[in-house]
Amino acid sequence: MMKQDSLEMFKGTLDLVILTAVSWTSMHGYEISRQIRLRTKEAFALEEGALYPALRRLEKKGWLRAEWGVTDTGREAKFYDLTAEGRNQLALKMQTWERYVEAMGRVIAARGPVR
């Protein structure tokens, strides 16, 4: 999905995206990556593999908890779930982002004639 017009991800954004993805239910890595693709409509320039180090980093921080389980299709997979700490972090990051987006929205709305 290295399209010409795909966006560079801001630093830290991937964490938020991951945390959001697993905020409803626990998922394994592939499901998370699919979720991200669907939600963002593949807008971000992101190697799919880059998800895995990020997952493990979040696990190390104690925001995610990982456990081997079995998928619907009967395959063994590693499932990721939000910890209490992860949920707190997600709420915090959300707030920051919402304020950021709101502010940027107002900036963009107030633009003069561009072309």
């Binding site: 799919e48 593999g49 880059a50 493990r56 190390k60």
Partner: peptide, 20 residues
Amino acid sequence: RLFGNRKNIRRECEQITKEK
């Protein structure tokens, strides 16, 4: 191809988990 550099990613993952 979509996954990216498998070797690097695996090494990075191993590293992080070992630290953890």
